[in-house]
Design a protein around this nucleic acid. Structure first.
Lengths: 222, 222
DNA sequence: ACCTGAACACCGTTCAAGT
DNA sequence: ACCTGAACACCGTTCAAGT
């Protein structure tokens, strides 16, 4: 193979970039060392020169996207900044659905590795500015963070399923399926089926954030 | 190989049981068709006769454990039952840390597959008994469910890391590491480091549940 | 210092053959 | 109907060899 020129030289950045593209295009199954070397026109050894292993590559891809979402300019009330932050993470995960699984895997591998502390720090700074007792900060931050990633993951999963399907049609079919459920076994799912038909994902997500914010300030008062 | 007797005959149940044992012993990496066939003294073909593929096997293993945790006898206030339910799931995930990753994967594969609706149903039934407006049910249930799985996953990850390590010693070291953090970059993590040193995992988890319950009833009132 | 590419160990899955 | 076990395609990773 010809000598690489300065322009198409490999680098950790270019590898991570290509990995993100493959993940976006075909999910976690779309990223293998075969597809990656093909796209970068190189061999596995070249990639291992820049990156220790696949786990590190996935971590780097996750890190770069989460960092972008965490960069919120401080121009609002703590509540407002929390909403902006939450929505930014929600949308990053909607755009890159594989982030959801990847964050869970990364968390299980090293709970207080590089991503989690940065997320907690970012949310926690705003929580501590809410004026609630310091003893409640960690629980409050934790409730927000877990809700954000859980709800965003659920949404991302829906987005994946909806890929190429008409959204309204799908929701209608899903809601109808729930309404037809055995009311002995699934009375709750049956009762909320109607709401599903015409809800707005972002709006519903933010309603959840507000619910938790209400809990934080209410609990902070007793 | 000798003919199987009635006693050691293979069955879907026995296979799932063995899979859970392998996952408990060595995490998701511990379960392969090689280790599974070895433990069951059989060949891969025999397993594929009872189970479609590895994903279905993992789903079945997850299902069986989550079902147990969802079986709460209805002898309390909705709030109390929600706490029992939440703690049951928390402890199931602490005992089987691989459940956390597995639930995320399963969610991403089929968001409204078999597990999610049962969890939402179980929590949702109690939420609807709280006496808050029906319009808030879904968001409230969603906030609870995502917090439970997120916090339980975080805890499970900690449990994994703590395996074989002295808990108090580890927490002390971790807290000290945070206190030493650059206060310019991680002021929040630094400020809560002290709390980490002597918190009780279950107690802190339930405080989060109560925070969300407070939010649900407070928001339901306006 | 950086890259090549063949080779290795291991994985999930298939399937013709047995009982 | 249920099981056996060799074989297949594919995966992440290594490493001697090149420039």
């Amino acid at each position: 193979m010809a000598q690489r020129t300065r322009e198409d030289a490999l680098s950790r950045e270019r590898i991570v970039e290509a990995a993100v593209e493959l993940l976006d295009a075909a999910g976690e199954r779309g990223l293998t060392f075969r597809t990656l070397t093909e796209r970068l026109a190189t061999g596995p050894g070249a990639i291992y020169w820049h990156v220790a292993n696949k786990a590190e590559l996935l971590d780097a891809a996750t890190d770069s996207l989460i960092s972008d979402a965490l960069a919120v300019d401080p121009t609002g009330s703590p509540e407002e900044e929390i909403r902006v932050l939450a929505l930014g993470l929600f949308e990053a995960i909607a755009r890159h659905p594989w982030l959801s699984t990847q964050l869970a895997v990364q968390l299980s591998r090293s709970p207080w590795g590089s991503v989690t502390p940065r997320i907690f720090e970012s949310i926690g700074q705003r929580v501590s500015a809410l004026g609630v007792p310091e003893a409640t900060w960690f629980t409050a931050t934790s409730a927000l963070a877990h809700y954000i990633f859980g709800a965003a993951g659920q949404n991302a999963a829906n987005v994946r399923v909806l890929d190429g399907v008409d959204r309204a049609e799908f929701l209608h079919a899903a809601a109808s399926a729930w309404e037809d459920l055995d009311s002995g076994e699934f009375p709750f799912m049956k009762s909320i089926a109607g709401q599903v038909r015409e809800h707005d994902d972002r709006e519903q997500f933010l309603t959840g954030i507000d619910l938790i914010l209400t809990g934080i300030t209410a609990q902070g008062r007793d």
